[in-house]
Amino acid sequence: MSETPSEPVNQILRVASAAFAVVFALFVASAVTAPASEFAVSVGLVSEGTTGLQVLRTLLQFAGFLAAVVGYLAITDQWELVPVSQLTLRDIGLVLGGGVALFAFQYGALFVLGEVGLTTGQNQAVVPDGDPVTYYLVMVAVSLLVVGPVEEALFRGVVQGGLRRAFDAAPAVLIASAVFGLVHLPSVSGTPGQRWAYVAVVVVLGSVLGVLYEHTENVVVPGLAHGVYNAVIYVVLLAQSL
């Protein structure tokens, strides 16, 4: 008869499992994105330095993330970590309110940082390779339908959900959000201080999403709230580019 691990051991195992899930997702995404995008260029589906290639790489990256999430859940038989249920009117309100609140917090944080002479780095995902209008329009849809839901399935479902099996809500939310922020670091340009300021903002944004997941036990809610937040950012960039 197997023994139940002690609480400290269980916590270590859950943190290690969460870290493995993220590393696994990054590995699969990298393994899918580079060769598939190179193949698309080689056969003339898209061209280097174009909006089409940039969007394709994003879609391939998140297809890799999704494949890793499904693979992890299948291997560990923990499908319940990513609960999906139909949205209620209350959930829809939380999605819209959460998305707007995330956007408002980001700009509030940028304002406060600016007042003390600090700035954050720039995520390269918002820098278009080709036509900015087309890119921002497409990314509104991609954010809502792909980026938000897939990232939340990974970070709130697999990571936070797994951590909740060994931790209370607050540490599980904070650890998952810290991992979420750190994963963004390589894609942020700027000085070291600017890049870490960006990560700090993302950690807080992730914590809000974590609370939504904890409160609703439905990964669709933070997934769509995240998508709304990203989409609003692209709408603002689109308006500025016109």
Rank of each mutant, 00 (worst) to 15 (best):
L102V: 06
T76W: 04
N123P: 07
A67N: 00
A109V: 06
G44W: 08
R57H: 03
G64E: 03
V82E: 00
G52K: 02
N123G: 13
L87S: 07
G71L: 09
D91R: 06
D91C: 08
G44M: 09
G114F: 03
D129G: 04
Y136E: 09
S47W: 01
F62S: 00
L118M: 13
L73S: 09
R57T: 08
A63T: 15
E80D: 14
G99L: 02
Q122F: 01
R90H: 11
Q122L: 13
P132M: 08
Q78S: 14
A101R: 02
Q122D: 10
P132D: 08
L137P: 07
D131R: 07
F62E: 08
L118F: 12
L94Y: 07
E48M: 04
D77N: 15
A63H: 04
W79I: 10
G99V: 02
G64L: 01
G130P: 02
Q124Y: 00
G117M: 05
V112L: 14
S42T: 08
L45V: 14
Y107P: 00
V133G: 11
R90S: 13
E115Y: 01
L96D: 06
L118A: 14
Q124A: 12
G117V: 03
Q124R: 13
A101P: 02
A63R: 04
A101Q: 01
L110Y: 05
V116L: 07
V43K: 10
D91T: 06
A104K: 04
D77P: 10
G97F: 05
S85M: 01
Q86R: 15
S47Q: 14
F105M: 11
L59D: 05
V70Y: 14
A74H: 14
D91Q: 07
L87K: 01
G130C: 02
